[in-house]
Design a protein around this nucleic acid. Structure first.
Lengths: 274, 274
DNA sequence: CGCGCTGTTGAAACTTGTCAAAGTTTGTGG
DNA sequence: CCACAAACTTTGACAAGTTTCAACAGCGCG
């Protein structure tokens, strides 16, 4: 929890009566200890971006890419623990993660938190705000990172022009819906062991598809955040990790995870209902 | 479970390797015991449709509505227990519920079912299929009903032309994402009592916004389906309903629910974590 | 009219949560 | 650079909530 008081809360009854508050003191430190942005561009450049297939630009022609580049106005740097946006703030843009690791969460008045997702490079944030013009969840950087800012009105305009862009965007939203289905399945039917196994395998797979090791990675989130995401208490997460370790499935060292027996984890998944 | 064998199953590891199967014997009984469709149209007619604000047609001009009418090719009638689509089938169209009551669910190989939503008049089904061109869940009629068929390729085409249509569609998808957030919160953090209270209030509110009584309604789904939706066993649902009745919050008579003390239910919601 | 599906209820078992204490790591300021 | 505090993690014992198993009742459909 920690920084709770300054995040926005979710009213159960669907009335999003929260007022937006003052924004983060837009800490756009102009390259303090920054990665030397080389000569290339300060502006975003989808055409150069290594996240192609994950993002919106797949299958666009050169000219179309140029238009998209033009649209993606700025990048925004986030420090660890900084909010990208908060529930209640007016919605204006989507964000594509370039670097870093994010979480989205929803808070109840009584302090309960539900982490609704962890996002990494190439994934899109902010789509929750389209329906009501107001963000309904909080997006927080779990480590220093950077996002591309995609003004939404302009994205709609451009996607009326570029069919492939339109379709890519629809695909991204749809995949998010499918991801949610999977998470509901997990939250609704799985036991703690299965949830953690599914979580680890999912992380592994996403790291892999970004070119990192499938077997060894660093979790950026706390046990409590994992627990919140999976509908478990942090103690249960901790205990289950320990059990996995005893059984030789993984080696845990704080936030470092090494998967020793992925097959074993998979077997846990298609096993038994509760 | 009952009709389990003929629905499609969800592979945990995201590989949707299921092959489509033969479709429902397209029972387009041409008005057997049908509601007399008057002279108006056999074709769908968004312009006439009473579901305006819920659906895609809000804020369109007359000519634009005419185009949308033209797009929404046919209606499809479903009998109780009939599948609108199944996981694994190729995705071609969205469906707008005109009448009746539907559920969507996802199945695991081992037989576990997660109901991911209940849909009523004015709500859109099928968006799960956009991302992969294949449906990822099953949609089933819980009572006889009818949907408008909206061929997706044409919807994209038309929404490149009509800005309001484009935006409406984006809003619909986004609201679905927000709904999912709420369900995750429910599944991840709430106790049985709270889940049921939230469920009843949600039903009540949706019936209300369609002009039905807020206090008295007929649930079309079984206790098992409610349980699956809420991540509970059917016995727990039953027990909790009984408890609510004892405490004077509701009157239950099988699938008929009468809400006697909505305030009491709301209080349950913003109460205590578990 | 009866069979089957659906719903209700009880008792016991099990999983997960709660509370508590102690260990570990990280970050900060002197 | 060290010391200390805060945050995070681990582990145990116990409590609570939910599931499981089982039996029975009721309604509805054929």
């Amino acid at each position: 929890m920690g920084k709770m008081p300054d995040r926005r809360v979710y009213r159960i009854d669907m009335d999003q009566s929260d007022k937006p508050t003052e924004r983060e003191s837009e800490t756009e430190l102009p390259n303090k200890s920054a990665v030397p942005i080389s000569l290339v561009t300060i502006k975003a450049a989808c055409s150069q971006c290594s996240l192609h297939e994950l993002c919106l630009s797949e299958g666009l022609s050169k000219e179309e890419l140029a238009k998209l580049d033009n649209l993606v106005g700025a990048r925004r740097k986030l420090k660890r623990q900084q909010n990208l946006y908060r529930a209640g703030e007016p919605f204006e843009a989507l964000y594509a993660v370039r670097t870093g690791f994010f979480k989205t969460d929803v808070l109840l008045e009584d302090g309960r938190e539900q982490v609704t997702g962890f996002q990494m490079a190439g994934e899109i944030l902010g789509m929750d705000g389209i329906g009501t013009e107001v963000h309904t969840c909080n997006a927080v950087a779990l480590e220093d990172g950077e996002v591309c800012v995609i003004p939404f009105a302009q994205l709609e305009m451009l996607s009326r022009e570029i069919q492939a862009l339109q379709h890519n965007f629809h695909k991204v939203m749809s995949r998010e819906l499918v991801r949610d289905q999977g998470l509901m399945m997990l939250l609704g039917t799985m036991r703690a062991e299965e949830r953690l196994a599914a979580f680890l395998l999912n992380m592994s797979q996403r790291f892999t598809s970004r070119g990192y090791s499938a077997a060894e990675f660093h979790l950026r989130m706390t046990r409590e955040e994992i627990g919140s995401y999976l509908g478990l208490k942090l103690e249960t997460v901790s205990r289950t990790f320990s059990r996995f370790q005893e059984e030789g499935f993984i080696a845990v060292q704080q936030k470092h995870i090494r998967i020793l027996d992925g097959g074993g984890l998979k077997k846990l998944l298609s096993h038994q209902p509760r």
